[in-house]
Design a binder for these strands. Structure first.
Lengths: 219, 219
DNA sequence: GAAAAAATTTAAGCTTACTTAAAAATATTT
DNA sequence: AAATATTTTTAAGTAAGCTTAAATTTTTTC
């Protein structure tokens, strides 16, 4: 299957996870940077390949086959991120960009080799779960967005859900890293802001950021 | 530049090295598995991009710009081969196939990181020289094909110039590996065969193989 | 050196993955 | 619920990278 198809299917998968299943062509088009017309076109084409269910004016839904393809690509992406993160000193954003390309040129065999080499990790450097070779995610995610946490409690960062360079630069600068601990010192519910203490620094996060930083309660 | 263009330029570069500069469109077409017409077409297109010199019915010659592009791709290919060879237990042929794809999806930055990680190697696992970031090959190659060697002398394998699975399987089976030592026990000049002793086994090579195994005299 | 064979080029056409523009349907606002 | 705005779809068109078939040029053979 082509790179365009892999990216299309992946975009549906990711949008389905994120935005309350808003997987109409327009949203996928926005994600991929193509026109709405191109997205509709592609959707119809992929329906004929049994990768998704298409009904005029309705949201796109992946078939089992499409879902498996998406997870296969996601697996390769996250394995590459894990490998590059381990071997090289590169920013998370740069790593993401490289993985975005490499994921489409990776045989299942190579993916297996990478996974083995890394000790079959369950999570990548962002805390995102790595599907296994059968396209299954076996881990259960108990984490919540920082925006949903309670004042006064300690949390461990479990996931940085983004691919935005500014966000990652911000994270790198303030020690917001997978596995690090922070304290939620205040929730400004009215203003939708979250105040945290990390590395002895107090940081005020707006909802843009507090909704994509996921954490688990520290015990 | 597209994958098709990178591969085209690379094919001219490689053919120029190998077959006495037989870089007419037909040969490139054969190398790439496309029609002669497609090769002519592409050649004309790349001439307009200043990547090669095109004259009707003549051999294709890369411009400096084209040569640099080819060497950049070759560099990435050989760096990937070196990395995969180091990290994973895979056959040389499998490694070659993966590198063939990855080479086109690798930023200069990532290539640098791979090179650094490996200690800026000068040669890949086949003994092929790795161009530097400026597209220069700084090593001087004093090796000769096994077919050109002298009876009774010891040699060290310096290069396995092929991408054929059968050849690599043969090599793997008989210990023909970069860096290994062998003795040329007899040259059958009339029949164009070379008899070698390696790992206490005597092997008779025909010209197909003796012309792509390169060696340096052992001192 | 003429005839035959092989290679190169041109021409026309195809598929993929897009585009823009206009038409049709759905969603939102008031 | 009508009017307006937004989305989706259809239609027509484009560029890249191929294909096959036919014409042209070069190379080889006798």
């Amino acid at each position: 299957m082509s790179i365009a198809i892999e990216n299309f299917v992946k975009a549906i998968y990711k949008n389905g996870k994120r935005d309350n299943n808003d997987t109409k062509p327009g949203n996928i088009a926005k994600e991929l940077g193509i026109s709405n017309a191109a997205a509709t076109d592609m959707a119809q084409k992929l329906a004929s390949k049994d990768l998704l269910h298409y009904e005029k004016y309705q949201a796109l839904k992946l078939t089992d086959k499409g879902n498996k393809m998406a997870l296969n690509v996601v697996r390769k992406h996250r394995l590459w991120e894990s490998l590059l993160f381990k071997l090289f000193d590169m920013s998370l954003h740069d790593i993401h960009r490289e993985a975005e390309l490499l994921e489409h040129q990776t045989s299942d065999l190579l993916a297996e080799k990478i996974s083995e080499y890394l000790g079959n990790p369950k999570f990548d450097p962002h805390g995102d779960p790595i599907p296994n070779a059968d396209g299954e995610i076996t881990t259960t995610d108990t984490s919540v967005a920082l925006s949903q946490t309670s004042e006064g409690k300690k949390y461990i960062i479990s996931r940085l859900m983004s691919d935005d360079k500014e966000f990652f630069d911000f994270c790198a600068q303030h020690g917001l890293k997978y596995g690090n601990t922070l304290l939620v010192s205040k929730q400004f519910n009215k203003n939708k802001m979250t105040q945290i203490l990390i590395n002895n620094n107090t940081i005020l996060l707006n909802e843009d950021f507090s909704s994509i930083i996921y954490v688990n309660e520290s015990i």
